[in-house]
Amino acid sequence: DETGKELVLVLYDYQEKSPREVTIKKGDILTLLNSTNKDWWKIEVNDRQGFVPAAYLKKLD
């Protein structure tokens, strides 16, 4: 059920640097789980959840 889920576009590649982070690729469109922290957003990638720098993402309307 995708209702109410926010999507984000990945602006730059990011390689995870800790187990709490996930790797993302430029151009991916992913589900945003939590954006309350202005610097690190929690997203879902391939059934994995983790954090990436918010500056690497853009919210889609």
Rank of each mutant, 00 (worst) to 15 (best):
E21G: 11
L9T: 05
K58Y: 10
K26L: 04
A55F: 10
G50R: 04
E21Y: 04
L11Q: 04
G50P: 02
Q49V: 13
I24G: 01
K25A: 08
V22M: 08
L30N: 07
V45I: 12
Y56F: 11
G50V: 09
V52M: 02
S35T: 08
D47T: 10
P19R: 08
V10W: 01
V8M: 03
K5C: 11
T23C: 04
L30C: 14
E6G: 13
L32K: 01
Y12H: 14
L33R: 04
V52H: 01
E16G: 13
L30D: 00
D13A: 07
S35K: 07
E44S: 09
L57H: 00
N46H: 13
T36N: 12
Y14E: 00
A54V: 05
K59M: 08
E6K: 12
G50E: 04
Y12T: 08
I43R: 00
S18R: 10
K17A: 10
V8Q: 01
D28H: 10
Y56L: 08
K17E: 07
P19F: 07
P53W: 04
L30Q: 06
R20A: 13
V22S: 03
D28R: 06
K17D: 06
V8E: 00
K59R: 15
L33F: 04
E2L: 13
Q49G: 05
D28G: 06
K38L: 09
S35E: 10
P53A: 02
L7F: 15
L7W: 15
F51A: 02
T23M: 03
N37A: 09
A55N: 11
Y14H: 03
K17V: 08
T31K: 13
Q15H: 14
T36G: 09
T3H: 14
K42E: 15
D13Q: 03
R20P: 06
V45F: 14
S18T: 13
N46T: 09
K26G: 06
R48K: 10
L9K: 06
L30K: 02
E16S: 15
E21I: 03
G50N: 02
V22I: 09
L11T: 04
V8H: 01
V8F: 05
W41T: 01
Q15K: 13
E16I: 10
T31G: 07
L32E: 00
E44D: 06
T23D: 03
K5F: 12
